[in-house]
Design a protein around this nucleic acid. Structure first.
Ligand SMILES: [Mn+2]
Ligand SMILES: [Mn+2]
Length: 298
DNA sequence: GTGTATC
DNA sequence: GATACACAACGCATA
DNA sequence: TATGCG
């Protein structure tokens, strides 16, 4: 990590502020930057010090985009980065740490609509402070997602493990467990895999942990494989490259009951909602804990 | 979107 | 100066 | 070792 600079996000100039990034909605780069400014106080605590992958659409979502992991050589020096080894022997990589509102403004200027972040933080990259169950439904029906999430929550609760839901802005939901960084990725993933398989065995007609799409049939995929070094999940409050500019939205369990879609929140309705309800994940890190040993059945 | 090569 | 072009992911499970 | 997958 490098030194932190407090730069006003308004000071970051946008190269083509009127460029339309969402053709069907007429949403411009300026609007994306304004959105980042408005959610920064909620988003920054969730992405701070996590290596960030950019999904960029410099010519809007009607044109193909690309992922960018490596920090570009032209990155301004006031943006934090972290350099770390890749799993491939001898290779390393430098990635962006989005630690300021100004950085968010810069990302908007780069045409980065969607950001993906690690489940660990720069000072201890091998030890995740998040465990994710990524619920991927077979179609646009959100009711099975809520069913899976509530079931998962109940089973975690039996073990005394708190969990926090987030719509992904696409079709699914993330169920997130804060961890105390006492174990590495392989340990967390093994735990998540076993837990997910037990859930799938309990409701085999509705849930699956099969990695190959072909084997999933019409079932909801409980994806535990995000829990790995160098892997990412969609950042809280990030915007999806889809019509309507839906966003990944942390919600309370109570609120989840009323949602009918993973795309319930978007760039144009989220700010009003946040002002009314506040940040449902405000206390997430205070709930960080350890994973207990799993019992034989369940 | 940006850096570099080329006329 | 205008324009063309290249470039911008990785870890892991499974077959 | 080469995909499939996210
Ligand atoms: Mn998903
Ligand atoms: Mn997934």
């Amino acid at each position: 990590m490098t030194a932190r600079v407090t730069t006003d996000s308004d000071r970051v100039e946008l190269s083509h502020p009127d460029k339309v990034l969402f053709p069907e909605d007429g949403i411009t780069k300026q609007e994306l930057a304004d959105y980042f400014r408005d959610v920064a106080e909620f988003m920054l605590p969730q992405v701070r010090d996590r290596p960030m992958t950019l999904q960029r659409f410099p010519n809007g979502i009607g044109e193909p985009g690309f992922y960018q992991k490596e920090a570009p050589s032209y990155l301004p020096e006031w943006i934090d980065t972290v350099t770390f080894p890749l799993r491939e022997e001898g290779r390393e990589q430098r990635q962006i740490l989005c630690n300021s509102a100004a950085t968010l403004a810069y990302l908007a200027d780069q045409g980065s609509i969607t950001q993906h972040v690690w489940l660990s933080r720069a000072d201890r990259l091998e030890y995740p402070d998040r465990m994710i169950f990524d619920l991927d439904p077979p179609d646009d029906d959100f009711s099975i997602v809520k069913f899976a999430a509530n079931t998962l929550r109940a089973k975690l609760k039996h073990l005394g493990i708190p969990a926090f839901p987030m719509t992904t802005g696409s079709r699914g939901l993330h169920v997130v467990v804060p961890l105390d960084r006492s174990v590495d990725f392989d340990t967390v993933r093994a735990w998540a895999a076993e837990f997910a398989r037990k859930l799938a065995w309990a409701v085999p007609d509705s849930f699956t942990t099969e990695l190959r799409k072909e084997s999933r049939g019409d079932r909801l995929f409980i994806d535990y494989t995000r829990n790995a070094y160098g892997q990412t999940t969609v950042a809280p409050y990030t915007v999806r490259a889809k019509k309507g500019a839906p966003v990944a939205m942390p919600v309370s369990w109570e609120e989840l009951e009323d949602l009918e879609s993973s795309q319930a929140y978007n760039i144009r309705n989220i700010v009003k909602h946040l002002r009314e309800t506040g940040d449902p994940w405000r206390d997430i890190d205070r709930h960080a804990g350890k994973l207990p040993a799993l019992q034989e059945k369940k």
